[in-house]
Design a protein around this nucleic acid. Structure first.
Lengths: 180, 180
DNA sequence: TAACACTGTGCGTTATAACGCACAACAGTG
DNA sequence: CACTGTTGTGCGTTATAACGCACAGTGTTA
């Protein structure tokens, strides 16, 4: 098996455990998997069965995929990413984050003449932009590109990126963030 | 472990194997997992390790999640669902189906006075509607509901549903289909 | 200071995953 | 018909997952 999968599982287990502030003993209680086994997994010393994986996921109240895919699943994400919606954007949450679908969707309005910078998201996050009206500039991978109404862009959001509206009217667009 | 997970794995394994027309022997070669073990899995007689799961997924050229989540992963889906885009709708593909994200997105226009019926999708398919302009009626779970510009609806698309435009102008909306 | 509780690791034992092999059943060919 | 090849299943053996327990180390309290 790809040693990287063992590592992904180990990293995820350590991260979720840390996020909850659980010791191995507490985690063993919550998941009904032995403390010794959990330690083995975190040290990448064993390949767990699906039964064990299911117990762990259930104990953490997570979908199985959260344990096998790189990066943390942002749970209970009720609002937009803080680094995106400063006091520049106006926004509306169209569909809040749903762990089953792994995505969320916003309607965003970038007023005339404004721009906004965004830090890199977690690894693997993908962003969709669908311009509804106006003109929107996106800075990605070292260059600006312009999208007019009806145009779309999909890009890896695990890098710095920016939005700019150089025109005299609002830019309205949909922003879909996929966490996979 | 939830016996249902054993069943999901068994059903998926059988289905992907059947889709490729592989025998257990051929699958054993492609995945480097023994024929006897594959048979055990299909008969739900064992809980595989993650190492084994990884080998199977790799042999089938699938992501791991395809083996653990109910329903087949629709691969190479380059166009919209045939039962949706008859000669009533005008459409534009915004983002074609991407197996990694598990979704696709369309811009749809339902002309004034038209309606269109859709069969149930595969189990687990979820649909999002975001009305951009005009007024759109959606028939779901036995009743019609109206959405105006800016309004959204998310529903389980594994049931019959319909779209209707009772107004005198086009209804323009985004339609996102999540296959998970 | 000693006692106690908690933490994560290591070890030997038990349970079971994963295997190779044999076999019965079936299909196709000469 | 006999022979060959393919299919999936069952069985015993091997490898390893998963466990309970002991222990060293750490921190807290009386």
């Amino acid at each position: 098996m790809g040693e990287s999968l063992k590592k992904v599982i180990a990293d995820n287990l350590k991260a979720y455990r840390s996020e909850k502030g659980w010791s191995l003993s507490r985690t063993a209680q919550e998941t009904t998997v032995s403390k010794a086994m959990l330690g083995q997994l975190e040290r990448q010393e064993s390949s767990p069965t699906m039964a064990t994986m299911w117990k762990i996921a259930k104990g953490f109240d997570l979908p199985l995929s959260a344990l096998i895919e790189p990066g943390l699943l942002h749970s209970k994400k009720a609002g937009p990413t803080p680094d995106k919606l400063d006091d520049i954007f106006q926004y509306k949450i169209l569909f809040p984050f749903d762990p089953k679908l792994g995505s969320e969707m916003f309607l965003l309005v970038l007023p005339a003449g404004k721009e906004s910078y965004s830090n890199a998201h977690a690894k693997g996050v993908v962003e969709d932009i669908v311009v509804i009206s106006g003109m929107l500039d996106i800075f990605i991978e070292g260059q600006w590109q312009s999208l007019k109404a009806g145009e779309v862009l999909r890009f890896d959001a695990d890098q710095e990126h920016a939005y700019r509206n150089s025109t005299a009217e609002n830019a309205v667009f949909h922003n879909i963030i996929h966490y996979r």
